[in-house]
């Protein structure tokens, strides 16, 4: 068997179901958004749903991108710090590794409930700090979506730590020790050994975080506000409308979300390809 053939055979079992499911999901959503598979009435090709949704799409897109970017930057920074602490050559913090592992299995729905209990006007934090609800900043449901970003950053920082830590654990210590033996200082070891080793994993995990945040609904719905709304919240609101004729608009918003996320994935892959360890 040629190596090429072998590689193809290795990839196919994953590729076939993925392509089938994603393809079917996208095609169904596009058909619905174009009025070809309505729940009521006759199928008819039209752009009405896209036109109707267009007004709010711009605001929703900007908000979604903003939330995803803020969450990703925070999650990447904290996650990297966690991974470094948990895999450090000297004084490795087992505790932080364990705590990060504790956070990963928390479903986002639960994380959102927890953040609400913590950050709301009358939440635990406000009570502990003795701040009255009026004086407490609007973290939950406020104009800056702080609680939403905090939840994503909290959960995803643990995910980033898991992915980056996995790579660093297997490689960094030996390289770091070699570099230390050769006389490299702490900063130099970080800059020239750890960071290049971690970069591909960090970039990959960040891209995953960004795209996940872009398409996720529960957290923004529970900790956000009714206007403006991010794309997924808008889509779910339209999909749940009492008027079934609005559903194609929900599909249009979902397709927009997916296309946006796909663009991010492609950009991330291009950027990652330039990094050394990522071919």
């Amino acid at each position: 068997m040629t190596p090429r053939r072998r590689a193809v055979l290795l990839v196919l079992p994953a590729l076939v179901p993925v392509a089938a499911v994603v393809g079917a999901a996208l095609v169904s959503a596009v058909l619905l958004s174009l009025g070809l598979t309505p729940l009521v009435g006759r199928p008819e090709l039209s752009l009405d749903a896209w036109r109707a949704a267009a007004g709010d799409l711009g605001t929703a897109t900007r908000l979604s991108l903003g939330i995803a970017a803020a969450s990703t930057v925070l999650a990447a920074a904290v996650g990297l710090a966690l991974a470094l602490a948990a895999t450090a050559a000297v004084r490795r913090s087992r505790l932080l590794g364990a705590l990060a592992a504790l956070t990963i299995p928390v479903p986002h729905l639960v994380g959102a409930a927890a953040m609400g209990l913590l950050l709301a006007d009358t939440g635990v934090l406000a009570r502990w700090l003795g701040v009255s609800p009026d004086a407490w900043p609007s973290l939950v449901g406020g104009p800056w979506w702080v609680a939403v970003v905090a939840e994503y950053a909290w959960k995803e920082s643990a995910f980033v730590a898991l992915v980056v830590g996995g790579v660093l654990a297997s490689r960094a210590r030996s390289y770091g020790e070699t570099a230390a033996l050769l006389g490299a200082g702490r900063w130099a070891r970080f800059r020239f050994v750890t960071l290049p080793l971690a970069a591909p994993a960090l970039g990959g995990a960040s891209a995953v975080t960004f795209v996940y945040t872009l398409g996720s609904y529960e957290v923004a719905a529970l900790l956000g506000r009714p206007y403006p709304e991010p794309l997924p919240v808008m889509a779910v609101r339209l999909a749940g409308s009492i008027d079934l004729a609005v559903r194609p608009q929900a599909a249009a918003v979902a397709v927009t979300t997916a296309v946006l996320a796909l663009a991010v994935v492609l950009l991330a892959l291009r950027a990652l390809r330039r990094l050394s360890a990522w071919h």
Binding site: A7, V21, S28, A29, T37, Y217, P232, A235, V265, L269
Partner: peptide, 27 residues
């Protein structure tokens, strides 16, 4: 070894871009 490896990787990452609620829109 994988032909068009970049495209295949992108395809394998594509489920991420599907918001979960999109399942209810036809799939």
């Amino acid at each position: 070894g994988v032909p068009a490896g970049g495209a295949v990787l992108a395809a394998l990452l594509s489920p991420l871009v599907l918001p979960p609620f999109a399942v209810a829109l036809g799939l």
